[in-house]
Nucleic acid binder design. Sequence first.
DNA 1: TCCCTATTTCCAGAAATCTGGAAATAAGGA
DNA 2: TCCTTATTTCCAGATTTCTGGAAATAGGGA
Lengths: 118, 118
Amino acid sequence: MEQTDAIAALSALAHPGRLGAFRLLVKAGAAGLPAGEIARLTDSRANTLSTNLTILTHAGLVSSRREGRSIIYVADYDSMRDLLAFLMEDCCSGEPAICAPAALLTEQAAACGAKTSC
Amino acid sequence: MEQTDAIAALSALAHPGRLGAFRLLVKAGAAGLPAGEIARLTDSRANTLSTNLTILTHAGLVSSRREGRSIIYVADYDSMRDLLAFLMEDCCSGEPAICAPAALLTEQAAACGAKTSC
DNA sequence: TCCCTATTTCCAGAAATCTGGAAATAAGGA
DNA sequence: TCCTTATTTCCAGATTTCTGGAAATAGGGA
C-alpha cells in the first residue's frame, strides 16, 4: 500500500459520521446495509451521508451495489487489512520486544478463540 | 478507546508529514529521535514539524523528553495498538470467515517469524 | 403516465486545517 | 555575559473540508 492510499483511508475514517458508518458496515458483514438504513442508524441526513459514503468508497474502504430502489453498501475487508498492515509494517524492525502486532495478535487470538475461523 | 480518541489519532495520521514522522519513530523504537533529525529526514521546516509533532502528541501517538538542547520524540506503541484494536473491534461479530485480524495475524506471524518476540 | 420512495448531485456559506515568516524560549559553551 | 544551536509559539493568509438546502436521477407500483 502506498502512503497516498493510506492517507486517503485514514482521512476517510477520521470523521465521526464516516467512522460510525464504516464500523456499522464492518459489523454488518458481507450482507451490507442500504444507505437509508445507515442514515437512520447514524442519525444523519441523506445527502450528507451520501457524500460521506462516496468518500469512503473513493478511499477503497467500502463498495456498493444497487438492489431495487436501495443501494447496499459493504465494508471492504481487504483494504481495511491492507491499511492495518501498512500501519504496523515497520514495527518489528525497531524493537521486537515492544512489537504492537505481537500483543495485538495475542489479544485477538484470545478474543476470537471461540469463533470458527478466527 | 473512545470514538473521539480514535478520530484524534486517525486525523493526526492522515497527513503526509505526520504519517512520515510517526512511521520514522515507529522504526526508531524506544530510543526515539530528536526533532531536528526528524525534520532533516522528512525534509520539513522546524516550525511546521513542531506543530505536527504537537498534534501527534495530543493524539497520544508520541511522547517526548528533553535531552540537553534536543527534544527526543518516541512513538507510543500502546496507543497505536489501542487504535488498531479499536478499528478491528467488531470485525469478528460479523462474518468470521472474512475476519481481517485472522488474515493479518497470519501475515504478521510469517513476517515476524524470524524475530525474537514477534 | 403519474406518483412515491431512495439516493445522489450541485452548490455556497461556514468552519477547520495547513503553512511558513518572525519572534520567543531554552540550554550549553566561551 | 554573549553567542550559537535547537525548538517552540504566535499569527495570518491560503486552502480544504463540512454541512445542508434544493434540485435531479433512478426504480417500482397503480
